[in-house]
Amino acid sequence: MRNFKALNYSFENLQKKNMAFEQVFEHIVKFMNKEPQGNYRLMFGTDSQVHSTYTRFVTGIVIQREGKGAWACIRKVAVPRQMKNLHEKISYETSLTEEIVSMFTEARKSELIDIVLPHIYKGASFTIEGHIDIGANSRNKTRVYVREMMSRMQSMGIEPIIKPKAFVASSYANRYTK
């Protein structure tokens, strides 16, 4: 039997580089524990940019306390070729988002929910969203993939968000694809 090396997931933000997923999760817990009665949105999204010899994919993780700030980080992945097929690129972006979402196991989601649960009747809330860099308007070339990609997010138990509201993919992650 061969030994398989665990995938190296490295996350970063402006304050810290080379964070393991456990560190990312600890930051989210710490952020939520500061104000457990807040309204929280845990959001994920991936965007990509085709460069001359590779395609860079950036997945963002954002925990937002509505009206009171956010904590965020990214994960970068490079595919060593120009990925020009739109369906392939959108599908891979969605896969990378799903990969990160899957790291938030039921136990980890329960830990986050347990932070706000005692404060639900005082207005606290917690939602999980998958931001997809696609749009449904008639001018958007990605509109033909909206149903497929939204179904994939829903099947993971998270709320799919598309343009123009998918800011984790279309704004935050996009900034780091260049």
Rank of each mutant, 00 (worst) to 15 (best):
G130E: 04
V50H: 06
E99K: 12
E159P: 00
P164D: 10
Q82L: 05
G38I: 00
V29N: 00
D133S: 01
H131T: 01
T142M: 02
I132M: 08
E106W: 06
H51F: 08
S52H: 11
D114P: 04
P36V: 03
F4D: 09
E22A: 15
I128V: 13
P164G: 04
S138W: 08
T53F: 08
N18K: 11
T142I: 00
G157H: 01
S125H: 02
E148R: 09
S52E: 13
H119L: 01
V146S: 06
K109N: 09
T53V: 07
G157I: 02
E66T: 10
M19H: 08
N137I: 11
K178G: 13
E129I: 02
E26K: 06
N13K: 12
E35Q: 11
F126D: 04
A124E: 02
T127K: 12
Q64A: 11
A78T: 13
V62Q: 07
K76E: 13
L86T: 08
S138P: 00
I90M: 14
R143D: 04
K109C: 12
V168Y: 09
Y9A: 06
Y54A: 11
Y121Q: 10
K17M: 11
D114S: 15
M150K: 15
E22M: 05
T142H: 00
A169G: 06
I63D: 02
N85A: 13
T94Y: 01
S151R: 14
R139H: 12
R56M: 04
M149T: 11
K122E: 14
